[in-house]
Design a protein around this nucleic acid. Structure first.
Length: 440
RNA sequence: CGGGGCAUAGCGCAGUCUGGUAGCGCAUCUGGUUUGGGACCAGAGGGUCGCAAGUUCGAAUCUUGCUGCCCCGACCA
């Protein structure tokens, strides 16, 4: 991408309404624009990051054997009446009538729909276990949306649904998902904390929420430092390894504000291991047995030829919220510090004096082509802006690395600078090797 | 839903109290000078002052109604 062609309407000032840093920075850098209360358009830069995060989320789902599909945003009210949630869900559900007067709704979640699909298409225990997921826009009519995409009404969510024959099997699916979640957040370079949670309107008897630790999050969390030292990379996909992981995470104390008890915290965690910080909920997993399969009559035939209800779980990740959560967790001095894996661009090439020295832009283009040929996501500054303004722009977007072509470059050596970090002089081939290595 | 605030150029704001026909910064366009940390000079374009009604010779300004947005509280990925 040449920056002169990129649609990114940056703002010098943002409204005093944007209180949260992530909200301010997303507006300033032209990632998003608000359409109406709690509803946002994603401009090219924001969408690019959203897609990169989505890809990582999907890869980790695929890795545990979940299969991607896509359900619609609009659903019929009928199945919600069958499950009993049409009345229970309340004002948060956006209800719509079509021209025939049929009752529809904009899905806030998809348990009913997936259960219907399962009911109509899966008849035998031999098809189990089955985990299906999709990444789709949801709508929940929040009483008071705020904080940009952090708490909005329309949001992108990955939701997965597991179907198993027995509770024991269902817990295996649940634990696999637990691992997938921790791996996903690890790849996003976030400190994620699984917490036992009350299960809310989704229902069921086992659930964890996943909280991203930040300095500025919404909810206060209390935890044993040992939880942060667990290395998720040491667990593989085997059942024993997964069980060990769940056991390891269950060993130590952690609680949100609501469940926190001072006495318990003090007695279970050594003073030196106590961590009190803030967090943002980005994921939630539930095991809820036959809560939906029973009312929706999602029966399958077991080995003995008898009909049974499958055991279900559902698993959500707020993908659009994750974008803001990454910013909150990692920003520094008004700069968004993207992990390389989701950065809007991996490298910016900055020829400083395009006007007075046309050769420098030619050099930039040559490097641009070489990097592109090596699969590197690169942006070239082909404008005649002042150097200062160029640097500011790339800082604002949060491109992690810069290649600077200017008076300090000699021959085929260029300044290779880490955003707000060290600068070294490298040749193009050295730079390519370095980035490839960082990408892993 | 309860309580409060705001709505003026693409963005951020002043002007409203005390009515006299709209201004500042940034952005945009033109020309010139600049170029290692959001450059400078000169000029230009851009506004039914959220909508509707009322008061008045005259309304961004006063009155009423409506709409939208935001903030504080109870919910949520």
């Amino acid at each position: 991408m040449f920056i002169s062609k990129l649609f990114f309407p940056v703002l010098r000032d943002v409204s005093a309404d944007a209180k949260l840093k992530s909200h301010q920075l997303m507006l300033k850098s032209g990632m998003i624009r608000q359409s109406t209360a709690g509803i946002y358009s994603w401009l090219p830069l924001g969408l690019k990051i959203l897609k990169k995060i989505t890809k990582i989320v999907c890869e980790e789902q695929d890795k545990i054997g979940a299969q991607e599909m896509l359900m619609p945003t609009i659903q019929s009210a009928d199945i919600w009446k069958e499950s009993g949630r049409y009345n229970d869900y309340g004002e948060e559900m956006l209800r719509i009538k079509d021209r025939q007067g049929r009752e529809l709704l904009y899905g806030p979640t998809n348990e009913e729909l997936i259960t219907e699909i399962f009911r109509d298409n899966v008849k035998s225990y031999k098809s189990l276990p089955l985990i299906l997921y999709h990444v789709q826009w949801k709508f929940r009519d929040e009483i008071r949306p705020r904080f940009g995409v952090m708490r909005c009404r329309e949001f992108l969510m990955k939701d997965a649904y597991s179907f198993d024959l027995t509770k024991e099997d269902a817990i295996k699916s649940y634990n696999k998902m637990f691992l997938a979640y921790l791996r996903t957040f690890h790849r996003l370079e976030l400190k994620a904390l699984p917490l036992k949670a009350s299960s809310g309107p989704i229902g069921g008897d086992s659930s964890h929420e996943f909280i991203i630790l930040t300095d500025s999050g919404e909810s206060q969390v209390y935890l044993d430092k040992a939880l942060l030292d667990i290395n998720i990379e040491k667990y593989d996909d085997s059942e024993t390894s997964i069980n060990a992981m769940v056991a390891d995470y269950s060993k130590f104390y952690s609680a949100t504000d609501e469940k926190y008890s001072k006495d318990e915290f003090e007695s279970k965690v050594k003073k030196s291991d106590q961590v009190v910080t803030k967090g943002i909920e980005v994921g939630h997993i539930f095991y809820f047995g036959d809560k939906y399969s029973k009312p929706l009559k999602a029966n399958i035939l077991g080995k003995d030829g008898k009909n049974i209800n499958s055991q279900m779980g559902s698993y959500g990740i707020g993908v659009s919220r994750l974008v803001a959560a990454v910013i909150e967790a990692k920003y520094n001095n008004n700069i968004m510090k993207w992990p390389l894996a989701i950065a809007p661009f991996e490298v910016a090439i900055i020829p400083l004096n395009n006007k007075s020295d046309p050769k420098s832009l030619d050099k930039g283009k040559k490097i641009y082509n070489e990097l592109k040929a090596n699969g590197i996501d690169v942006i070239l500054d082909d404008t005649e802006e002042s150097p200062a303004s160029k640097f500011k722009n790339f800082e604002l977007i949060g491109v992690p690395f810069q290649i600077i072509i200017g008076s300090k470059s000699v021959d085929d050596q260029f300044e290779f600078k880490e955003l707000n970090g060290i600068t070294e002089n490298l040749s193009v081939s050295e730079i390519i090797i370095k980035i490839k290595k960082l990408k892993g």
